[in-house]
Design a protein around this nucleic acid. Structure first.
Lengths: 146, 146
DNA sequence: CTATATGCAAAAGTTTTGCTAGATT
DNA sequence: AATCTAGCAAAACTTTTGCATATAG
């Protein structure tokens, strides 16, 4: 079952409707595995459907997130823009270079451990973890002027 | 040396001035060890100095952060409001309950490991890490209606 | 004195909402 | 036909900025 099929089913199962706008946004999200923000998504969608509105993009993102087809998180500690991507049940975290602004995705087995430890420590169900790291990337860290 | 003394020195050392507004905000920050957001800080400050403005609060927070007297981070994955607190050089992370909204601070030695691993993996200097966890707290996790 | 800070008002930037018309099932 | 969704415009919300005035050193 493709992502689009799964999406259609999930939307219908929740009483929603598969509009052309949603189809378009689903396709774009599927193409942007690394994540995309609402405004960029709107730009790309507008190229194919010039009448699509930014509120529709946001509402669709919320709808898709509610049925767990996509997930969202921030990728830097700055209050920049939220990133959305198809839900593959895999946590991803990001490092942002303070100087050049480049964002690098990372994963670590330590995060699963951390989740477990946290669950035990707080006696809670840990469902989501968002990690935003910042510093200097390899290139910028070697420059003279700090 | 008290926090206020250290603050005065650091502000002067950077060419800044210790205004009554800054003194007030420093005292409030020192009282709120767990962290406080700009709006709440402004509310509390207004109680003692009704003319203090929100832009002054934000500007002061930036100034204090620039000289490393305080640190800031978000405490929920929603990145709702930034939290500020005096810099004790200790990372703190937070878990937010999805249902009741309660925020719990936590620490873990695994985070230092994670930082190291990340630095090695990306060949970067990792200066900051922000971790926001979410889920159900012990109380809410036991309730019937999910 | 002179550079730095403040207050006010207004702007910026992202995300949300109200409402009516339109599309989906 | 009934209900869900889109578009538009405007609001909400946190944070930032421009500018004239006041204040610290």
């Amino acid at each position: 079952m493709t992502f689009r099929d799964a999406a259609r089913d999930a939307i219908h199962a929740s009483g929603g409707r598969l509009t052309s706008q949603r189809e378009l946004l689903l396709d774009l999200l599927a193409e942007h595995d690394a994540g995309i923000d609402a405004e960029r998504l709107h730009q790309l969608a507008s190229a194919q459907d010039p009448t699509i509105s930014l509120p529709t993009v946001y509402r669709t993102l919320h709808t898709l997130e509610a049925v767990r087809l996509i997930v969202s998180n921030y990728t830097s500690s700055d209050h920049d823009r939220k990133q959305y991507r198809v839900n593959d049940d895999q946590d991803r975290f990001h490092f942002t270079c303070r100087r050049c602004g480049r964002v690098t995705m990372f994963r670590s087995a330590l995060v699963a451990q951390l989740k477990q430890e946290l669950a035990a420590q707080l006696d809670a169900q840990v469902l989501t973890v968002c990690i935003c790291a910042g510093g200097l990337c390899s290139t910028c860290g070697q420059e003279d002027t700090p």
